[in-house]
Design a protein around this nucleic acid. Structure first.
Lengths: 203, 203
DNA sequence: GGACCGATGTATCGGGACGATACATCAAGG
DNA sequence: CCTTGATGTATCGTCCCGATACATCGGTCC
């Protein structure tokens, strides 16, 4: 999941780890943040896989000691995405299977990079997510009506609130899907299931 | 967090790991489940700490080989809470500091066991949780109004939905607090922090 | 001038949780 | 009979988190 998000951000511009973390927190929805304990190992993995490069200028460079007034520039490391990294990102961005929406966290990241995602893939992800959350909702409803009597007030309240949240998410997703359908092809008309979508986000 | 939940469940009745997991899923609000990869190591820790015992009858028992028709009874292990475990649980149940509400997951578990929690502690936890979530909400609001223009439609929608969820949680908590205040002490009057709550579990 | 402080910045460590997986028993039913 | 599904115990590798350490920079306050 981090892999996708990092590649997505570096796809837009090279960045320091620190900046990356801030952007990440924003992309993730504001509340969910990413810790350095996840970020740096992830960057290391990406580096090892050849998806990013660093400008680390070899820490033990001789440095003839004749540029002391030169602006510090200590350990700052700028991470840049490579061609392989971009390829990998586009590969990931094209996935529309359950792995893209079964986990809410990954779905959030996918949504945040929807502008890089083809219209048909967007739709499949949104609908897959809706089905997943709907299933959750039904399970929750069933469990709640089954155990309503045996639960104390607080547990009941907890379940009620959970169900309410899930229900709201379903409605939200339905709204997104609706918007996707209505303003994705307002001027177009016949372009049905030819497998070749209007491909709107062509960077 | 698991420690608290497991002790809480075993406090009510001895159980198998399997049953524990099912109950846990219910207590956690239905959507959040616990994997065996967490559960069994947690039970092992609790066992090592002396908070639970097992009826494991020593796997390499001689078994004179004269009871084949005896009902299988393979590895089933029943976990039972000990006196130290109960003590530990009551110690945990008395905590009302930030550790009880800063993490949403733990807060949920605390709520699920509110019937074992003193009224004043309940109130402190609910109010602490509310303050935490309110802070989140304000941060989210600020971030949203700061970056409204620079975000694309999908990211914006994600943030909007997140803010909405948080807002709903605040209102839900306010409702719980209100109910706590109004029907916690209608007949009583002075019975403040005596540690002996009016026992409100009113079904 | 200098002392402090918060933002920027890189990095590791231990621990906890997860998903996947393996294995075993037993009841129900095609 | 034999396959499926529920019950049941347990581990492995991987990921992620919170805490922590360290270092630099631009301010502000006295």
């Amino acid at each position: 999941m981090l892999e996708f998000a990092i590649l997505g951000l570096l796809h837009q511009a090279p960045m320091h780890g620190y900046e990356l973390r801030k952007q990440l927190a924003q992309v993730l929805g504001g509340l969910r943040s990413i810790s350095y304990g996840s970020l740096y190992p992830a960057l290391k993995r990406l580096h090892a896989a050849g998806y990013v490069t660093t400008d680390e200028p070899d820490p033990r460079a001789p440095l003839p000691a004749d540029a002391p007034p030169l602006t510090g520039r200590r350990g700052k490391v700028v991470y840049t995405i490579t061609a392989e990294g971009k390829e990998r990102f586009h590969e990931l961005v094209g996935q529309s299977g359950p792995e893209a929406y079964d986990d809410g966290g990954l779905f959030g990241v996918r949504l945040a990079f929807f502008r890089h995602t083809a219209a048909d893939v967007r739709l499949r992800i949104l609908e897959g997510r809706r089905r997943t959350v709907e299933r959750q909702r039904e399970g929750l409803r069933a469990s709640l009506s089954r155990t309503r009597e045996r639960l104390d007030r607080y547990t009941l309240e907890l379940q009620r609130h959970g169900l309410d949240s899930v229900d709201r998410e379903v409605r939200w997703l339905a709204e997104l899907i609706d918007r996707e359908l209505t303003d994705g092809q307002p001027p177009r008309d016949g372009g049905a299931d030819t497998g070749d979508p209007p491909a709107p986000p062509r960077p």
